[in-house]
């Protein structure tokens, strides 16, 4: 089944058509880059998909569920995780606490009667704790896991946000400019994690205004300019496409 299906989705702010009749599909396990110059509407499209903004037109479907009228919490519970272009963490909470917040959309699969069975509750708590440990480990955050986010050295915050997005094992992962201001080592880890998520069957939408990282990571690209989708195809062919080149002239 198609994982994400965007159908003529629009988001207009008054006269500004930030996203204008955009359509594309994403299959489970697919890695797709969403690129376009600054202000072309990428973040707005991500906000529409994740229910942070409701579209002014068109529809969005996630794993067969019509989601354009759902609010963000309901979309999160469909298995959609995201990161933010400007990192949004709880600065006065520890790294571990932040990562654990990523489990909030995952319902406890405990039957009601287990609320009186300490053993079942304990097992559930250990299972969740193990998931948090795993996400922390995957992003090499063990040595800072009890630190408050505001005490972290620069550059680790994106890893924390990524761990928070991964801990729930989402079926759709949307990363909004995750490569902005990170080191080469961070880029390698990010690439590895994206491939791992994909092979687990998770669809990945990778947003960037810079083509280079996306070209290395994503076999497929969709390109936006002035709110419209101007290209949807392989990354290899994208660089030869005149409309794509035109959008990137002078950026």
């Amino acid at each position: 089944m198609t994982l994400l299906s965007v159908r003529e989705a629009s988001k207009h702010f008054g006269a500004l058509r930030a996203v204008n009749e955009v359509s594309f599909d994403l299959e489970p396990g697919e890695i797709c880059g969403l690129v376009g110059p600054n202000g072309s509407g990428k973040t707005t499209l991500v906000n529409v998909i994740t229910g942070v903004l409701s579209p002014t037109g068109g529809s969005v479907g996630i794993a067969g569920v019509e989601s354009s009228q759902l609010r963000s919490h309901a979309i999160a519970r469909l298995g959609v995780s995201r990161t933010f272009q400007l990192i949004r963490l709880l600065r006065f909470s520890s790294v571990r606490e932040n990562v654990r917040m990523g489990l909030l959309p995952v319902p406890s699969k405990l039957p009601l009667r287990s609320w009186v069975q300490p053993a079942a509750l304990g097992a559930d708590r250990r299972r969740r704790s193990a998931l948090v440990d795993e996400a922390i480990e995957r992003l090499d955050l063990e040595h800072v896991s009890s630190r408050l986010v505001r005490e972290l050295p620069f550059g680790l915050e994106r890893r924390v946000e990524l761990a928070r997005a991964l801990v729930s094992k989402p079926q759709l992962l949307i990363l909004d400019e995750p490569a902005a201001g990170v080191t080469a080592a961070d880029m390698r880890d990010l690439n590895r994690i994206i491939q791992e998520e994909s092979s687990r069957g998770c669809g990945v939408l990778l947003v960037d205004h810079n083509l280079r990282f996306v070209l290395d990571t994503c076999p497929r690209l969709v390109v936006m300019n002035f709110g419209q989708l101007i290209y949807d195809g392989t990354s290899a062919a994208a660089v030869d496409e005149p409309r794509v080149r035109e959008a990137y002239v002078g950026t």
Partner: peptide, 11 residues
């Protein structure tokens, strides 16, 4: 905003 995207029914 983040609360919503982490499954919290804000309203």
């Amino acid at each position: 905003l983040v609360a919503g995207t982490l499954g919290v029914n804000v309203r």
